[in-house]
Structure formats: C-alpha cells, structure tokens
C-alpha cells in the first residue's frame, strides 16, 4: 500500500515536472522575438502570406491559448488547415513539425534509435573503461600507472568532443581507413554495418566520458579503501583481489551509478556533438536543426522528451540504488 502510494506520488511528480517544463519552454520561446511562422512563409514573405501561414499553424492565437491547444492535443489530437491539404496529428499529439511535415512523436520515434544506439553502446564502454582504470589507479595509488591514468583523464575531461571526433575520423577513417567516416545504418538493416558505423562514435564518447568516471571511481575507491569494513575484509584473510573487487567495488559503484544514470539519461536525449561529427541524424541533430529554424513544436517536443528521459533515469537510478545499497531500500 505504501509502495503504491509512493509510486503514485512519484508519477504525479513526474507529470507535474513535465507540465512545468513544457510551460516554461513555451513561455521562453514566445519571449524571443523570432517568429516561428516566418519559417513557413516562403519568399517573398508579404505580411498577408505571413498572417496566412501563422493562422494555418495556429501561431496567430495568444500564446497561452497555443499552450492550452498543445496540452489539449496530447489527449485529443490536433488538426491544422482545411480540405485535402489539411494536416492531422493524432492523439497523443505533442506538436507537428511543418518544416518536416511529420508529427513530433513520429519524428522522435524515427530519430531515437540512432541516438539510443550511440548512447547505450558508448555508455557501456565508458563505464567499463572508466571504472576499471579508476580502480587500477586507486589500488596502485601514487605509482606511475596512477599518475598516467590521471594525466590521461585530465586530457579526456578537457577535450572537446568535436575535436576528438574529428581527429578520430581523420586517423581511423581516412588515414588508416579502418572504419566508415560517418552515417548510421539501422540495426534491423544490417547488424554488422550498424556496429561498424558505431564503433568510432562509441570510442570517442567513451574516451571523453571515461575520463570523468576514472576520476570519480578513483576518488571513491580511495575513500572506500579507508573504510573499516575493508580492514575487516583483509583481517579475515580475503585475497586483495576479492577485497577490491567485491567489498570495494560494490560500494564504489553506488555513487558511480547515480552519475551514470543521469549522464545516460541526458545523452539519450541527444548526443548533439557526436551526432554532428559523425553525420548521424539522431535526436541531438533534430533539436539543433529545430532551434536553428525556430521549429517550435519540435523544440517543445524534444525538450519534453529529454526531460522525460532524465526523470526516468532518475527513477531508474533510485531503483538500482536500492538494489546496490540495502540501506536505502524499504
């Protein structure tokens, strides 16, 4: 019963967070002087044509009314224009992009697999790489290994993704000709090509993010190694590998998982720079285009979706946290 009530509150909290975010996104974009209708006005853009385009897309109404229409559309769907050329956006309608002639939900559905492929693969890689090098550095604290790992991670943390991506393409794509220089092949089309196209973006993202995780893991591990229970584990005769790998790592993972969950959640909402460098049309590319062209429905939809992912990631982190740390589970 308590769990149910808790879940209920949680869901309510998620929904209201999203509501506030959608409202703010709308408000912010209406404060900006750019007119979203101008995008669909054509050339020459006479005031009459602009008004026509505005009316068709519903941008002529007061912005609060537009916001309410947007909310209504989620439940009842929306309809723009008249006659054969009218546009339908079936419920749940989170907006319709007149630039791309598709409902936002459909656009996100099309683009999400790209971003998810990049994000999940890279995340697994950087977690493995970061945690293992962080553990190694902590255990061999003060040695050459530790210092070089930390120098490496400082470089990684401060490297711009665009630059690393470009260098990766130049080296592995052009000079060595080992991997394709960009593009995305759906998993359903060819699993091998899918993997082949993703290897480089994964490595680039992993390299940059692993640096952060190496630092985090090292710091946590050094702290954990000073805990009483590590001394206990040694005093009962455990081998060092088991002391580190079981008693140490499990406790180190607790904070790492928190950061990881949020990072992954953010990345799933769009790996903007990676997508751009590797010419992959994921959610990040979609959002950047939308911002550049004042494609308001896509901006709102993407913002909401990204927020939703972060909220879900938060929730997932809490769940995993409960599994990893029995002290927080009820």
């Amino acid at each position: 019963m308590r769990t149910l009530r808790f879940a209920g509150f949680r869901l309510l909290g998620m929904a209201s967070t999203l509501l506030v975010i959608s409202f703010l996104t709308y408000a912010v974009f209406y404060v900006l002087p750019a007119d979203p209708a101008r995008l669909s006005c054509g050339r020459p853009c006479t005031p009459e044509r602009l008004a026509e385009a505005s009316a068709f897309m519903g941008y002529d109404k007061p912005w609060l009314q537009q916001y309410l229409d947007f909310l209504g559309g989620i439940f009842t769907g929306r309809h723009f224009g008249a006659g054969q050329a009218a546009v339908d956006c079936a419920a749940p309608c989170f907006g319709y992009s007149f630039r791309l002639n598709e409902p936002v939900t459909q656009l996100i559905g099309e683009r999400a697999p790209v971003t998810f492929s990049i994000a999940v693969g890279a995340a697994v890689l950087w977690l493995l790489l970061g945690v293992s090098s962080g553990v190694a550095a902590a255990v061999k604290r003060g040695t050459l290994l530790d210092r070089s790992a930390m120098v490496f991670s400082t470089i990684g943390v401060s490297s711009p993704a665009y630059l690393v991506g470009l260098l990766g393409i130049l080296l592995f794509g052009f000079t060595l000709d080992m991997v394709p220089v960009g593009g995305y092949v759906p998993l359903t089309e060819s699993p091998v090509d899918w993997l082949w196209h993703l290897v480089l973006p994964w490595c680039v993202l992993a390299l940059i993010n692993a640096a952060l995780y190496a630092r985090l893991t090292r710091g946590q591990m050094i702290e954990v190694l000073g805990e009483d229970y590590i001394r206990t584990a040694r005093a009962k005769g455990l081998r060092e590998r088991r002391v580190i790998g079981r008693h140490g790592l499990r406790n180190v993972l607790i904070p790492v998982v928190t950061v990881f969950g949020l990072d992954l959640g953010l990345l799933l909402g769009g790996a903007i720079i990676t997508e751009r460098v590797f010419s992959m049309q994921g959610l990040g590319a979609l959002l950047i285009e939308a911002v550049g062209t004042v494609d308001l429905p896509v901006i709102v939809g993407m913002t909401l979706f990204a927020a939703f992912l972060v909220i879900v990631a938060n929730f997932a982190v809490d769940l995993v946290y409960g599994v990893l740390d029995p002290r927080v589970s009820r």
Binding site: E227, Y229, T232, R250, N251, I254, L324, P326
Partner: peptide, 8 residues
Amino acid sequence: TAFNPVFT
C-alpha cells in the same frame, strides 16, 4: 562500520 553495509 566494520561490516560491509551492502552484504548480509
């Protein structure tokens, strides 16, 4: 603190 908090 001498017992590891995450194992029984």
